[in-house]
């Protein structure tokens, strides 16, 4: 599904990713953990094609093609979805309008017919039920005046509608109380399938109680310094990140 080799990336003058390798197979859920500033969000941004990040070295192959060659919208249409850590507000643009434009862009790309208004609404309402969102949400501006929790739910709703092949969730748990976290995690879990992979970026292991990963990677100073199963997350919870930084140096 996704193969990252020796990835180096910088933001402005600052090198952030310094030789990162990661293999994600179909249907797998990978958690990327690490302290603040280790490069987690940069990795998510590079995968989605954030324009202010520059890849200086390495390759990213997604379903056999060079992901770095594609514009952000092309990646989205190929099935790469980023759930933003800070979803942006777009005043005056309806949620439902954005969703419909996005879905039809993806469908068109896949050679499928565009959905008409009825089909589309039926689909969205079904997914909204999953995310426990009220109808009034549809006619509000994109993330306009949303609480932190509403914004995150909106991200997962978009994911549920767009049905990506590779979902990258960037700190989706930050700013959520436990009830909102459960709703979001429930939404994500319902989207797990043998042909959909996920990369879950998080600072805390709490999220992983609800979205159980197949692999856990620890990112430190732009590199993956340890890989393990779910138990690695629990260990991190207990011991913090500091012992790994030392370990990385020793290794």
């Amino acid at each position: 599904m996704l193969s990252i080799k020796n990835l180096h990336a910088r933001a402005g003058e600052r090198d952030i990713l310094k030789g990162l390798d990661l293999e994600v197979g179909p249907g797998e859920v990978h958690a990327i953990m690490g302290p603040n500033g280790s490069g987690k969000s940069t990795l998510a941004g590079v995968l989605a094609g954030r324009p202010d990040l520059e890849v200086t070295e390495g390759t990213v192959t997604y379903r056999g093609q060079d992901l770095l060659d594609l514009d952000p919208e092309e990646r989205a249409r190929e099935g790469v979805f980023l759930a933003f850590q800070y979803p942006v507000e777009i005043p005056g643009v309806n949620n439902v309008y954005l969703l419909k434009a996005a879905l039809n862009a993806v469908r068109k790309h896949r050679g499928e017919s565009e959905l008409d208004a009825f089909e589309f609404l039926a689909l969205v309402k079904d997914r909204m039920k999953l995310m426990q969102m009220g109808d009034s949400f549809l006619n509000r501006g994109v993330n306009e005046g949303f609480s932190g929790g509403e914004k995150k739910r909106n991200e997962i709703l978009q994911m549920a509608v767009l049905e990506p092949a590779l979902a990258v969730l960037d700190e989706t748990d930050s700013g959520l109380d436990i009830d909102a976290l459960k709703v979001v995690a429930n939404g994500v879990n319902s989207l797990r399938s043998p042909d959909r992979s996920m990369v879950v970026v998080t600072h805390y292991q709490r999220l992983l109680d609800y979205i159980v990963p197949d692999f856990v990677h620890v990112l430190s100073d732009g590199r993956i310094v340890r890989t393990g199963g779910r138990e690695l997350a629990l260990e991190l919870e207990e011991r913090g990140y500091d012992w790994l930084r030392g370990g990385a140096n020793a290794a």
């Binding site: 919208e73 989205a76 996005a102």
Partner: peptide, 18 residues
């Protein structure tokens, strides 16, 4: 712009939409 493009919408459409 990046948010819209990440959802598959072209830059031109995104600008018009905004």
């Amino acid at each position: 712009l990046f948010y819209c493009r990440q959802r598959g919408i072209s830059e031109e459409d995104a600008v018009n939409m905004i």
